[in-house]
Amino acid sequence: MTQKQTPSQTIGPFFAYGLTPEQYGYNLTSIAAPDVANKDQAGEHIRIEGQIFDGEGVTVGDAMIEIWQADAAGRYAHPADSRGSNADFTGFGRVGTGTDPERRFFFETIKPGAVGDGQAPHINVIVFMRGMLNHAYTRIYLSDEVEANAADPVLAGIPDHRRGTLIAKRDDSGAGPVYRFDIHMQGADETVFFDL
């Protein structure tokens, strides 16, 4: 029997003790964390960090970001990926922007490999926050993947002046590689959000 989709509603401002409890110091086990990869995980270990800006350029301190990515070999830990999953790497991370004084989000993970379907390596992102009635999908591409990005069919479909909003800038000046990925909800630099 045909059913109709349950409508989305906002995550609201008070999600942290339910969805990101350990990060915020609440007494409930978290199912996911900003640390996506353990130290022994194969692949290049990277940090992703950024801020979310509202339409007035103010940083958002009550958002939640989720990421979903392939492992270093480009495999997803999911039954639909028939190549077999890497059991040690779930590829899923979750972070709130409410525990950092500068309202940054961050993930400690590994650099994803190319899935092998012509797309450049990328990390899938969902943004939730008070004031958003539906979550927003976007993607993180990686600035050092110049050739792969140039051949990526999704990036190719984005107007030139907006493509950069999807590309995280790699910084190798610190102890380990950091990719900076800011999310702009509105304005001239409004991030590309997808309908998928």
Binding site: W68, Y76, A80, N124, R130, L133, V154, Q186, F194, D195
Partner: peptide
Amino acid sequence: LRSPTKPLVPLAQSLSEITGPV
């Protein structure tokens, strides 16, 4: 101030979208 103002960009579903955390 928090809603996207530009139309969402259609994205053909790939393995990235049809998989997800289990």
